[in-house]
Protein backbone atom coordinates (compact mmCIF):
# COMPACT_ATOMS: atom_id res chain seq x y z
CA UNK A 1 0.00 0.00 0.00
CA UNK A 2 1.50 3.35 -0.94
CA UNK A 3 1.27 6.52 1.04
CA UNK A 4 -0.76 8.28 -1.61
CA UNK A 5 -3.34 5.56 -1.95
CA UNK A 6 -4.05 5.79 1.75
CA UNK A 7 -4.84 9.50 1.65
CA UNK A 8 -8.59 8.95 1.87
CA UNK A 9 -8.12 6.63 4.79
CA UNK A 10 -6.21 9.32 6.56
CA UNK A 11 -9.15 11.69 6.19
CA UNK A 12 -11.44 9.20 7.79
CA UNK A 13 -9.00 8.63 10.56
CA UNK A 14 -9.12 12.32 11.37
CA UNK A 15 -12.86 12.58 11.49
CA UNK A 16 -13.80 9.25 12.98
CA UNK A 17 -13.78 8.73 16.70
CA UNK A 18 -10.76 6.73 17.86
CA UNK A 19 -12.90 4.04 19.38
CA UNK A 20 -14.71 3.53 16.10
CA UNK A 21 -11.45 3.01 14.34
CA UNK A 22 -11.05 -0.48 15.66
CA UNK A 23 -13.76 -1.97 13.53
CA UNK A 24 -13.47 0.44 10.59
CA UNK A 25 -9.76 0.58 9.94
CA UNK A 26 -8.12 -2.59 10.85
CA UNK A 27 -8.68 -5.69 8.84
CA UNK A 28 -6.96 -8.98 9.41
CA UNK A 29 -5.77 -7.65 12.69
CA UNK A 30 -6.61 -10.61 14.84
CA UNK A 31 -2.87 -11.10 15.55
CA UNK A 32 -2.66 -8.17 17.99
CA UNK A 33 -4.50 -8.54 21.26
CA UNK A 34 -5.05 -6.10 24.10
CA UNK A 35 -5.60 -2.36 24.34
CA UNK A 36 -4.02 -1.31 21.06
CA UNK A 37 -5.82 1.98 20.68
CA UNK A 38 -6.30 4.97 22.96
CA UNK A 39 -8.69 7.88 23.10
CA UNK A 40 -5.93 10.41 23.23
CA UNK A 41 -3.36 9.39 20.60
CA UNK A 42 -0.22 11.41 19.95
CA UNK A 43 0.88 9.06 17.21
CA UNK A 44 -1.26 6.67 15.23
CA UNK A 45 0.12 3.77 13.24
CA UNK A 46 -2.10 1.75 10.92
CA UNK A 47 -1.18 -1.33 8.89
CA UNK A 48 2.51 -0.51 8.86
CA UNK A 49 4.75 -2.79 6.79
CA UNK A 50 8.50 -2.31 6.51
CA UNK A 51 10.67 -4.04 3.95
CA UNK A 52 14.41 -4.37 3.43
CA UNK A 53 14.58 -5.06 -0.30
CA UNK A 54 12.26 -8.08 -0.57
CA UNK A 55 12.52 -9.09 3.04
CA UNK A 56 9.62 -7.95 5.16
CA UNK A 57 10.73 -6.83 8.60
CA UNK A 58 7.44 -5.48 9.97
CA UNK A 59 4.09 -7.12 9.25
CA UNK A 60 0.93 -5.09 9.37
CA UNK A 61 1.43 -3.30 12.68
CA UNK A 62 -1.27 -0.99 14.03
CA UNK A 63 -0.93 0.81 17.36
CA UNK A 64 -1.55 4.15 19.06
CA UNK A 65 0.84 6.03 21.29
CA UNK A 66 -0.94 8.27 23.79
CA UNK A 67 0.15 11.78 24.82
CA UNK A 68 2.69 11.88 27.63
CA UNK A 69 2.80 8.15 28.01
CA UNK A 70 5.87 5.95 28.12
CA UNK A 71 5.40 2.98 25.88
CA UNK A 72 7.91 0.16 25.95
CA UNK A 73 8.52 -2.14 23.04
CA UNK A 74 9.91 -5.49 23.96
CA UNK A 75 10.57 -8.74 22.15
CA UNK A 76 13.30 -11.18 21.21
CA UNK A 77 16.25 -9.84 19.20
CA UNK A 78 15.54 -9.45 15.51
CA UNK A 79 11.80 -9.06 16.13
CA UNK A 80 11.76 -5.68 14.35
CA UNK A 81 11.13 -3.43 17.33
CA UNK A 82 14.07 -1.16 16.48
CA UNK A 83 13.09 -1.05 12.82
CA UNK A 84 9.58 -0.03 13.82
CA UNK A 85 10.90 2.66 16.15
CA UNK A 86 13.18 4.07 13.44
CA UNK A 87 10.28 4.36 11.03
CA UNK A 88 8.52 6.69 13.50
CA UNK A 89 10.92 9.57 12.73
CA UNK A 90 11.86 8.30 9.30
CA UNK A 91 15.41 7.40 10.27
CA UNK A 92 14.92 4.44 7.97
CA UNK A 93 15.14 6.91 5.08
CA UNK A 94 18.90 6.81 5.50
CA UNK A 95 18.91 3.11 4.61
CA UNK A 96 18.65 2.91 0.84
CA UNK A 97 16.98 -0.47 0.63
CA UNK A 98 14.36 0.22 3.29
CA UNK A 99 10.73 0.81 2.30
CA UNK A 100 7.84 1.76 4.63
CA UNK A 101 4.17 1.17 3.80
CA UNK A 102 1.02 2.04 5.72
CA UNK A 103 0.02 5.09 7.69
CA UNK A 104 2.05 6.70 10.44
CA UNK A 105 0.38 9.84 11.76
CA UNK A 106 1.27 12.35 14.41
CA UNK A 107 -1.52 14.61 15.56
CA UNK A 108 -3.40 13.40 12.53
CA UNK A 109 -0.68 14.37 10.08
CA UNK A 110 0.80 11.68 7.85
CA UNK A 111 4.54 11.52 8.49
CA UNK A 112 5.20 9.92 5.12
CA UNK A 113 3.29 12.52 3.11
CA UNK A 114 5.47 13.66 0.20
CA UNK A 115 5.28 17.32 1.14
CA UNK A 116 6.24 16.78 4.74
CA UNK A 117 9.73 17.97 5.53
CA UNK A 118 11.68 15.31 7.32
CA UNK A 119 13.77 18.00 9.02
CA UNK A 120 10.73 19.40 10.76
CA UNK A 121 9.52 15.93 11.63
CA UNK A 122 12.78 14.96 13.28
CA UNK A 123 12.82 18.17 15.24
CA UNK A 124 9.43 17.12 16.62
CA UNK A 125 10.34 13.46 17.11
CA UNK A 126 13.76 13.21 18.72
CA UNK A 127 15.79 10.07 19.06
CA UNK A 128 18.32 8.57 21.45
CA UNK A 129 20.43 5.71 20.20
CA UNK A 130 21.66 2.42 21.55
CA UNK A 131 25.28 3.50 21.79
CA UNK A 132 25.91 7.01 23.11
CA UNK A 133 26.98 9.04 20.06
CA UNK A 134 28.05 12.50 21.18
CA UNK A 135 29.62 14.53 18.40
CA UNK A 136 33.35 15.06 18.71
CA UNK A 137 32.74 18.59 19.98
CA UNK A 138 32.46 20.20 23.38
CA UNK A 139 29.58 19.40 25.71
CA UNK A 140 28.14 22.84 25.12
CA UNK A 141 28.38 22.49 21.34
CA UNK A 142 26.72 19.09 21.49
CA UNK A 143 23.64 20.46 23.21
CA UNK A 144 23.65 23.69 21.25
CA UNK A 145 23.84 21.81 17.95
CA UNK A 146 20.07 21.36 17.51
CA UNK A 147 19.05 24.87 18.51
CA UNK A 148 21.78 26.25 16.24
CA UNK A 149 20.82 24.36 13.11
CA UNK A 150 17.14 25.04 13.63
CA UNK A 151 17.73 28.69 14.46
CA UNK A 152 15.94 28.46 17.82
CA UNK A 153 18.11 30.88 19.73
CA UNK A 154 18.31 34.50 18.68
CA UNK A 155 21.07 35.49 21.03
CA UNK A 156 23.95 33.90 22.80
CA UNK A 157 22.09 34.33 26.07
CA UNK A 158 19.09 32.42 24.70
CA UNK A 159 21.37 29.65 23.59
CA UNK A 160 23.10 29.49 26.97
CA UNK A 161 19.69 29.24 28.58
CA UNK A 162 18.54 26.43 26.29
CA UNK A 163 21.74 24.52 26.92
CA UNK A 164 21.48 24.92 30.66
CA UNK A 165 17.79 23.96 30.74
CA UNK A 166 18.35 20.91 28.59
CA UNK A 167 21.28 19.74 30.68
CA UNK A 168 19.23 20.32 33.84
CA UNK A 169 16.34 18.33 32.43
CA UNK A 170 18.76 15.55 31.55
CA UNK A 171 20.11 15.77 35.16
CA UNK A 172 23.58 16.37 33.84
CA UNK A 173 23.99 20.05 34.63
CA UNK A 174 25.50 19.65 38.07
CA UNK A 175 28.08 17.20 36.77
CA UNK A 176 29.28 19.16 33.77
CA UNK A 177 28.64 22.85 34.45
CA UNK A 178 32.32 23.37 35.26
CA UNK A 179 33.55 21.86 32.01
CA UNK A 180 30.98 22.79 29.39
CA UNK A 181 33.67 23.51 26.85
CA UNK A 182 35.51 20.26 27.15
CA UNK A 183 35.00 17.40 24.72
CA UNK A 184 31.77 15.44 25.00
CA UNK A 185 33.62 12.22 24.28
CA UNK A 186 35.55 12.56 27.52
CA UNK A 187 32.47 11.79 29.63
CA UNK A 188 31.61 8.38 31.04
CA UNK A 189 29.21 6.17 29.12
CA UNK A 190 26.21 7.04 31.26
CA UNK A 191 27.00 10.74 31.13
CA UNK A 192 27.43 10.54 27.38
CA UNK A 193 23.99 8.98 27.04
CA UNK A 194 22.45 11.68 29.22
CA UNK A 195 24.27 14.22 27.08
CA UNK A 196 22.60 12.67 24.05
CA UNK A 197 19.24 12.95 25.80
CA UNK A 198 19.98 16.58 26.62
CA UNK A 199 20.91 17.11 23.00
CA UNK A 200 17.61 15.59 21.91
CA UNK A 201 15.44 17.64 24.29
CA UNK A 202 17.24 20.89 23.47
CA UNK A 203 14.96 21.34 20.47
CA UNK A 204 11.84 20.62 22.61
CA UNK A 205 10.57 17.64 20.66
CA UNK A 206 7.06 16.32 21.29
CA UNK A 207 8.04 12.68 21.14
CA UNK A 208 11.35 11.07 22.10
CA UNK A 209 12.26 7.69 20.67
CA UNK A 210 14.78 5.67 22.63
CA UNK A 211 16.44 2.72 21.01
CA UNK A 212 17.77 0.51 23.83
CA UNK A 213 19.33 3.56 25.49
CA UNK A 214 20.83 1.57 28.36
CA UNK A 215 22.18 -1.48 26.61
CA UNK A 216 25.74 -0.12 26.60
CA UNK A 217 25.62 1.11 30.21
CA UNK A 218 26.34 -0.28 33.64
CA UNK A 219 23.53 -0.79 36.21
CA UNK A 220 24.13 2.48 38.06
CA UNK A 221 24.09 4.55 34.90
CA UNK A 222 21.03 2.61 33.78
CA UNK A 223 19.18 3.47 36.99
CA UNK A 224 19.93 7.16 36.41
CA UNK A 225 18.60 7.05 32.89
CA UNK A 226 15.45 5.25 34.01
CA UNK A 227 14.87 7.87 36.68
CA UNK A 228 15.32 10.48 34.01
CA UNK A 229 12.79 8.82 31.70
CA UNK A 230 10.21 8.99 34.44
CA UNK A 231 10.83 12.72 34.94
CA UNK A 232 10.76 13.38 31.22
CA UNK A 233 7.42 11.66 30.81
CA UNK A 234 5.79 14.70 32.42
CA UNK A 235 6.60 16.78 29.37
CA UNK A 236 7.27 14.33 26.58
CA UNK A 237 5.77 11.32 24.93
CA UNK A 238 8.33 8.56 25.02
CA UNK A 239 8.64 5.34 23.06
CA UNK A 240 11.41 3.10 24.31
CA UNK A 241 12.72 -0.09 22.81
CA UNK A 242 14.34 -2.24 25.41
CA UNK A 243 15.89 -5.60 25.72
CA UNK A 244 15.27 -5.82 29.41
CA UNK A 245 11.81 -6.76 30.66
CA UNK A 246 12.59 -5.36 34.08
CA UNK A 247 13.32 -2.01 32.54
CA UNK A 248 10.05 -2.06 30.62
CA UNK A 249 8.27 -2.95 33.83
CA UNK A 250 9.98 -0.12 35.71
CA UNK A 251 9.60 2.78 33.32
CA UNK A 252 6.65 2.25 31.02
CA UNK A 253 2.91 2.74 31.25
CA UNK A 254 2.09 0.42 28.39
CA UNK A 255 4.09 -2.39 26.86
CA UNK A 256 3.99 -3.70 23.31
CA UNK A 257 5.30 -7.15 22.58
CA UNK A 258 6.77 -7.79 19.11
CA UNK A 259 7.46 -11.21 17.71
CA UNK A 260 9.05 -11.92 14.30
CA UNK A 261 7.97 -8.57 12.90
CA UNK A 262 4.42 -8.82 14.18
CA UNK A 263 2.86 -6.90 17.03
CA UNK A 264 1.44 -9.59 19.29
CA UNK A 265 0.06 -7.77 22.29
CA UNK A 266 -0.29 -4.27 23.72
CA UNK A 267 -1.52 -3.78 27.26
CA UNK A 268 -0.86 -1.74 30.38
CA UNK A 269 2.54 -2.76 31.61
CA UNK A 270 1.29 -4.25 34.84
CA UNK A 271 -1.08 -6.50 32.98
CA UNK A 272 1.52 -7.65 30.45
CA UNK A 273 3.83 -8.79 33.21
CA UNK A 274 1.20 -10.29 35.50
CA UNK A 275 -1.38 -11.82 33.21
CA UNK A 276 -0.48 -11.63 29.55
CA UNK A 277 -3.30 -12.24 27.15
CA UNK A 278 -1.35 -13.96 24.41
CA UNK A 279 0.47 -17.27 24.90
CA UNK A 280 3.54 -15.96 22.99
CA UNK A 281 3.83 -13.00 25.36
CA UNK A 282 3.57 -15.30 28.29
CA UNK A 283 6.21 -17.58 26.86
CA UNK A 284 8.56 -14.61 26.42
CA UNK A 285 8.11 -13.03 29.84
CA UNK A 286 8.46 -16.35 31.58
CA UNK A 287 11.75 -16.77 29.81
CA UNK A 288 11.01 -19.64 27.49
CA UNK A 289 12.83 -17.76 24.76
CA UNK A 290 14.69 -14.50 24.56
Amino acid sequence: MTQLASADKKKRANTAKPTAMKSLEVEGHEATVGKVFTDNPKMTMRNVNVYYDDKQAIHDVSIDIAKNEVIAMIGPSGCGKSTFLRSLNRMNDTVDICRVEGDILMDGENLYAPKLDVVELRARVGMVFQKPNPFPKSIYENVAYGPKIHGLADTRVDLDEIVENSLRKASLWEEVKERLHQGGTGLSGGQQQRLCIARAIAVSPEVILMDEPCSALDPIATAKIEELIEELSENFTIAIVTHSMQQAARVSHRTAYFHLGKLIEVNPTEQVFTMPEHPLTEAYITGRFG
Partner: peptide, 27 residues
Protein backbone atom coordinates in the same frame (compact mmCIF):
# COMPACT_ATOMS: atom_id res chain seq x y z
CA UNK B 1 33.44 8.57 10.57
CA UNK B 2 31.03 6.21 12.33
CA UNK B 3 27.45 6.01 11.08
CA UNK B 4 26.24 6.77 14.62
CA UNK B 5 27.48 10.37 14.17
CA UNK B 6 25.35 10.78 11.06
CA UNK B 7 22.36 9.16 12.78
CA UNK B 8 22.77 11.39 15.79
CA UNK B 9 22.76 14.50 13.69
CA UNK B 10 20.00 13.45 11.30
CA UNK B 11 17.81 12.42 14.22
CA UNK B 12 18.09 15.97 15.53
CA UNK B 13 16.51 17.15 12.31
CA UNK B 14 19.70 18.35 10.68
CA UNK B 15 19.68 18.30 6.90
CA UNK B 16 22.30 16.22 5.15
CA UNK B 17 24.47 19.20 4.29
CA UNK B 18 24.27 20.44 7.88
CA UNK B 19 25.33 17.01 9.05
CA UNK B 20 28.24 17.01 6.63
CA UNK B 21 29.40 20.52 7.39
CA UNK B 22 28.87 20.59 11.13
CA UNK B 23 29.53 17.03 12.21
CA UNK B 24 31.30 14.94 9.59
CA UNK B 25 33.84 17.46 8.32
CA UNK B 26 34.86 18.58 11.84
CA UNK B 27 35.16 14.94 12.87
Amino acid sequence: VPQSMRDGSLAMGATKSETVRRVIIPA
